[in-house]
Design a protein around this nucleic acid. Structure first.
Lengths: 347, 347
DNA sequence: AATATATAGTTAATCGATTAAATAAAAAAA
DNA sequence: TTTTTTTATTTAATCGATTAACTATATATT
């Protein structure tokens, strides 16, 4: 049998005062008008009874839970778990706690999670929205529940967001492959209509265009993330084993690169000789690959910090202007993309 | 201005009945004795007003929050984020939500987190306890708050736990190195008095002992996890660059292996020729290493599922017997440990 | 001494939902 | 018709903390 926790009432009874007095002492401290004598007795009793305020009761009264709902695609994905950790730490500075949920990129799951967390009265959300979750996001707006989108956003819905300049990042990554003398550059992305993925493809195309390189539809493969393995094989077979194979490959995410490289190894192709590689995101695996990967490093720290900053500001004041933050990725150049001509000469 | 959410009262007013009636209709359904006519009207109104019950109020009344507090060392560590994901999914089956916190292996942080979550009235905990957190765990017991320890436990405190048979796992890993003809086997562990780490060292020693191999104190290095990089270098220098260098190395965790291997590469030593390697835990990085790593795969799925199963059972019934679960790791043999003689002959 | 002003504390409403107990109205039994 | 039983609904207490409004003293002011 659970020993019930001590409440204000218990302290009040013990000291012989009203619960109001106890509350004033414990929550108002010096500012209360309670006499020093009583105040002391109350504090003493609180300590003796090991009083811990019931936050649920406080929340009910105040309408605030000091809880942030965090919705990501999958907390076990290092990209998100890293951000989650930063958000956790940042939130703690503001005395906020984090409840998380994984949407699995499914709008329905995300909807359930959001509803669930609203019922639990979270004060605000940080969301990496799933494809097709526009309505849910719109609904949050209409209910005036503060939220910040991260990683992805919906151009048609005006809201707070902290995202990457995906267009520029992809453009930079592909440009690097061009600079290292590659002419037939393929890309592997997720088949996902979300803006961030589209921008990555756009950046890829633009880089080709500006450098007067061929863009072929068959060199951009979109893969369903529920069948990565099989679709990756088909995609790579088509691009690498064809009559006219590509000489470089741009991966739109970490996970895609991991799967892709495993298959490239199976095909016994050598990086960067047979295919040069640039990928999005960092990963321990990238450091250990025989040919360390050139990648686009996202500013995760910044994602986490900014999103918490914006959210807490908006939770404190609902009338603030929205913030739209685009951060830049950093291209970390290593061996997998090959060397540029100038570099070659110098070396 | 936040539009206030609709409450039972709003529905009651709209339909013209008491809040009690509304509550009965909405929470008791068929079992209530409310007339079909009223019932229908109430449901209709609830839908029109988009009623969502306030879980905070429910929790205050019921004393249940349907929330599990999850405390791990660091949610951004793949080992824990993977477990977190499994716990999240399992908990959802029981209609439970998860609040997490990272202790950073610090007892004080862990204490704050636990206190914080208790005040938020979580119904139970799943905890990977930090070193020195015995008192907190003991306190949970005394308050009769249900909890399950995972990954580590305290032999002196009887409680639910789901851990690895670390002794056996380490024994198996080191035995493999012995079978592949290595005689001078080092180990790198964390300097941590937690039982799981000690067991890993014990398993290592026992494997040496049973095979009549030398055990030397200088071949077991304990590293402070706040200074992995520097201490790893010193440790490896001492073991690998000495007069009598070791020929095999056993890493007690994923993170240690990652740092260790990076430095081994810097030293230009080849695995398994110069040093054979076996490590705990899996990791994408291990697959991509030029010499795929032999490792001890922990049954994460099982950790998550069992811990939630046990916790929910104990939350439902406080008088259940404690469960002590030890799971076995699986040794995944790849190239980094070298080949055993028999295998060599056959090959 | 009479009045005004602090001081120290209590009462009671409130947040939103639940539920035991009370009540009123209708139906069944006598 | 009267009494009993059943059915449908309301009242009010409750969970624990907060806080505006009130009351009762004590102290200061004139």
């Amino acid at each position: 049998m659970k020993r019930k926790k001590t409440s204000l009432k218990d302290i009040a009874k013990k000291v012989g005062v009203s619960t109001a007095t106890v509350s004033y002492v414990l929550s108002k401290g010096k500012e209360s008008k309670v006499s020093a004598a009583v105040s002391e007795k109350v504090k003493q009793a609180a300590k003796e009874l090991n009083y811990q305020p019931n936050q649920i009761a406080k929340s009910l009264k105040s309408g605030k839970t000091f809880t942030i709902g965090l919705i990501v695609a999958d907390i076990s994905n290092p990209f998100f778990s890293h951000i989650a950790r930063i958000i956790e730490d940042e939130a703690a500075h503001f005395n906020y706690n984090v409840i998380f949920g994984s949407s699995d990129e499914k709008a329905e799951k995300s909807d359930n999670l959001i509803q669930f967390l609203i019922n639990r009265q979270v004060d605000g959300f940080i969301i990496a929205p799933a494809e097709g979750s526009e309505k849910q996001i719109q609904a949050l707006k209409e209910q005036h529940i503060p939220f910040v989108l991260i990683d992805r956003y919906f151009p048609d819905i005006s809201s707070n967001y902290v995202v990457l300049n995906n267009y520029k990042a992809a453009y930079d990554g592909v440009s690097r492959l061009i600079k290292t003398s590659h002419k037939k550059i393929g890309m592997i992305a997720y088949s996902n209509s979300l803006q961030h993925m589209c921008e990555r493809v756009k950046g890829y195309k633009q880089a080709l265009l500006e450098n007067k390189l061929d863009y072929r539809e068959k060199w951009v493969k979109e893969i369903d993330f529920t069948h990565i393995e099989e679709e990756m094989k088909t995609a790579l077979d088509e691009m690498l084993l064809s009559e006219e194979p590509i000489d470089a490959l741009f991966f739109a995410t970490n996970t895609l690169a991991v799967h892709g490289l495993k298959y490239i190894d199976q095909l016994q192709l050598k990086v960067p000789h047979d295919v040069a590689i640039v990928s999005f995101d960092e990963g321990e695996a990238f450091d250990f690959y025989y040919c360390p990967l050139t990648y686009l490093k996202q500013p995760l720290e910044e994602f986490g910090k900014q999103s918490v900053r914006i959210l807490t500001a908006h939770m404190a004041n609902n009338d603030l202007d929205e913030e739209h933050i685009q951060l830049d990725a950093e291209l970390i150049i290593r061996k997998s993309c090959g060397m540029a001509i100038e570099e070659n000469k110098e070396g």
